[in-house]
Design a binder for these strands. Structure first.
Lengths: 107, 107
DNA sequence: TTGACATGTTATATTTTTATAACATAATGT
DNA sequence: ACATTATGTTATAAAAATATAACATGTCAA
């Protein structure tokens, strides 16, 4: 199904704070491309589109054209994927790992 | 405490698959810098060191010198942090978000 | 102290990301 | 058809990340 390469794409897509902000903006409801661009007036429209392409390539955005608009939807499954296969394990064990760390570092 | 800037550092540090591999290598037990470098013979030692510096700056590696060796320990708390404040929420709601997505995309 | 080992730094080349401008297409209302 | 709106593409500049070589420091053991 999904290879390590896919995971890497997802991690890389999430690495940019503007891209995470775009996902946040799609969390409550889908938005048109124009509406999304309007939410980031400090960034050039072309730049937003480029970020969206990265998100789409990682499967985090699914879009459908309707008339002359394009509705962009969040797909959170890729996030769940890296959570399930990598991050969740670290997050779950963080406290006990921290205990070991402290024990190791103490004299 | 920990700002959005810190979160960004953590996401960026995790974006590279070699750095994630380094963390994986430290998961079971701490390792010396040399032992870590030996685990990645395909990468230059200097490159591994540079990656380690990125991980250390993000708080994911905590190190202590002992004699002429340096023991590198994993600190998973930063991962838990981005999990708690961002990823976990998406991962938890992924399935219901997916349901909405399907409903939206169906005619 | 001398040599070997373990680690670290600096400088620089290479590659990838990110940002932007200029141009292009496609749908809608009049 | 024509003007307008919404979106998308291509080319290129600018910045950041990554890789590597050359050099430097600190520790230990004989």
């Amino acid at each position: 199904m999904s290879s390590a390469d896919d995971s890497d794409k997802i991690f890389k897509a999430l690495a940019d704070h503007r891209r995470r902000a775009i996902l946040d903006a799609l969390k409550d409801e889908p938005k048109t491309t124009g509406a999304l661009c309007d939410m980031f007036p400090q960034i050039d429209r072309t730049t937003v589109l480029q970020h969206m392409r990265v998100l789409e390539a990682a499967g985090l955005i699914v879009a459908r054209r309707e008339g002359r608009e394009r509705w962009n939807h969040l797909n959170a499954l890729p996030i769940k994927e890296i959570h399930d296969r990598w991050i969740g394990d670290y997050a779950r064990n963080a406290v006990s790992l921290m205990a070991r760390l402290k024990a190791d570092l103490e004299p």
